[in-house]
Amino acid sequence: MSQIKIIEIKEGIFEQNNQTAQELRNRLKEDKTLLINLMSSPGSGKTTTLVSTIEALKNDIRIGVMEADIDSDVDARSIDQTGARVVQLHTGGMCHLDAEMTRQGIEALDPSGLDLVILENVGNLVCPAEFDTGAHKNVMILSVPEGDDKPLKYPLMFSIVDLVLVNKIDAADFFDFDLDLFRRRLAKINPEIGVIPISAKTGQGMTPWFDWLKQQVHKL
């Protein structure tokens, strides 16, 4: 006769992930490699921003990239052309990366000698917000065409990031994105957050972002 036995687990769904993330974060800190998790909707300009960032900083900081774009290596190729160390992560159609997948990506990349690793997360404003990847800093890109009301629609994402890059400001004349209104909406959700308006395409406004990155690498 088989009986039924109850095994109590009583554990938050994200606890295991949070623990793996914390271990990864500590290890990378010991190795003096800063991990940045870069998130946005598809097409906001993650890859374009990465490419121009690597071009601008490659003589100052040794940068590696982990690409998690779903089922494509287009992004990894554009990064590869900058000469930076890059790995393509295969997320198998998942809508986010968790800490274990990030850890495996780091192994594959081999972070030794790198000052900075940037993770281009899956294009999505919902799911990546819920999974700690083990990054030291979380950065998101919101592009001008997406609108200034996004903090209202995706409060969790805006509450977990340290910095928002408002991209495509070269196209500001064609859209009704109100930067002041955006800042006010954001401040309600996350008063600590930094905002840097940029154009990854023209290079406008990129210097404060480069300075922020250098400062974070330095601080680690």
Partner: peptide, 16 residues
């Protein structure tokens, strides 16, 4: 705001 795995019920084969 909870979202957790409370418990699992498993077959206990001890006697068999």
């Amino acid at each position: 705001r909870e979202f957790q795995i409370k418990q699992i019920a498993v077959e206990d084969h001890y006697e068999s």
